[in-house]
Write a protein that binds this DNA or RNA. Structure first.
Lengths: 246, 246
DNA sequence: TCTGTACATTGACCTGGATCAAGAAAGATA
DNA sequence: TATCTTTCTTGATCCAGGTCAATGTACAGA
């Protein structure tokens, strides 16, 4: 459904640890070749669960396109998103046989995967990749801890803004720092609420408020193309409400 | 001041990555020896800041005794604790020159330290230590994410209970699972509040409530010894309020 | 074009925890 | 012993965000 960029399928694993190959002469070339040959792509539909918490997880991989979430759920149904996986983000942890969280595709998503066993073998033989993996894990740890500040101490409005900043940073930023930023909002209100430790109603109200305050602007409706909009410019401009922030 | 266990100074770095030596025949023994010879101990008093966020950090180390916290502070003073360092916990991150958070001793504390440079060198030469470090970082990441659920979705009472469980788990648990657990509470109400995303008043009220509900029990006052208590049993039992959970 | 489903918005009301404000205990100092 | 400081407790009040409920909108399928 909706937000679907599976079209840019051409695999761009630009931040995949494997790519490290380009800059490392000391690693085991055969090993890397072997891995490169054994990578494969998997598609998931929006809403589909990629891995269930505590299930065996036989692969590692990175997001090529689309968005997924890491989610924790309590017995009574309360859920907290603990991670957001955007293109180039890595998923899976060497030396852990089971997943720690539910991984759910929130949009159609393409992942670049490796079977875990050979990947672990490669880590052993190519210390620089292990090093890169440690670095990535430390980054994730920093992000998690920064999010603890958001969850523990920020107001609803600040929480929304924090999320918007994260998403904006991951899009292509405009050259001019002062130019307005445009980016996709590939999450439902509920998903945002789960990330922010709020209810979906509060998220909705805060977004409306930010909109009313002129801080964020409405976006083009999902399946409306640029030509569609352009056509509107030829009509009498009566129905001025151009679109919706999804 | 108060909670001071610097007395058990005898260095017990039982979970220090260096200890890995005992189980690894493949690592560079000279390197390990060199590091072992170059470890040193540092003492900090309760309240003292061990490292300031963004300051250069020239060492890594682990807690021998005492408790420290990792804290993030916003410009307006709101603070969120993002990590709790108990004995055997590791601090410092290879390849990062500056600290990401304030590290503050909440009790008198003894740390076992290594200068960062040689430590990093050792990591390069002893892949198994790098591996162990990745494992430790993944554990921290799990802990941080579990804490996100606590901060985002739990009630004040549940938050307190979550903290108590963490502290209880780190103490020596009784053989009998059903026996009551006894452990130190080496944090002020304010520190707990900062960890839990609450105010200190709420923490105080909730602890009083848990106490009233018979879920937690009062503990012996800090500087009262067992003989002191015993002496009380000889008096007329009028002043029955035996002590305080502090 | 109608219908059903999934999301999003908005309103009315309630409540858990924050805020403000005294006091009381613990512990240090003298 | 009295005094000062820091920490903890408790009460009174407030309000941000939760809860419950109704309505609107997007869009797929028939």
């Amino acid at each position: 459904m909706r937000y679907n960029n599976a079209s840019k399928f051409s695999p761009d694993c630009s931040d995949c640890p494997i790519r490290h190959r380009a800059v490392c002469a000391r690693c085991d070339a055969d090993e890397l070749d072997h891995l490169e040959r054994n990578k494969y792509y998997r598609n998931f539909q929006a809403g589909q669960t990629i891995v269930w918490a505590d299930d065996r997880m036989e692969f590692v991989g990175s997001v090529v396109s689309g968005v997924a979430t890491l989610t924790q759920t309590m017995e009574d149904g309360r859920t907290q998103m603990v991670g957001l996986l955007l293109p180039s983000d890595f998923i899976g942890r060497p030396d852990r046989s089971t997943a720690a969280y539910d991984v759910v595709a929130t949009t159609d998503i393409v992942m670049c995967c490796f079977r875990k066993k050979p990947f672990e073998k490669m880590i052993e033989n190519t210390p620089h990749i292990a090093h890169r993996l440690l670095e990535m894990t430390l980054d994730e740890l920093d992000a998690a801890r920064e999010w603890m500040l958001v969850l523990g101490r920020k107001t609803a409005r600040e929480k929304i803004a924090s999320l918007l900043v994260i998403l904006a940073r991951r899009g292509k930023l405009p050259e001019d720092v002062n130019a307005p930023v445009v980016f996709d909002l590939p999450l439902t209100r509920e998903a945002m609420a789960d990330y922010l430790g709020l209810t979906l109603e509060t998220v909705s109200r805060q977004i409306s408020a930010l909109n009313k305050d002129g801080i964020i602007e409405l976006k083009i409706k999902r399946n409306v193309t640029v030509p569609d909009i352009y056509r509107l410019t030829q009509e009498a401009g009566d129905d001025s409400d151009g679109g919706y922030l999804n």
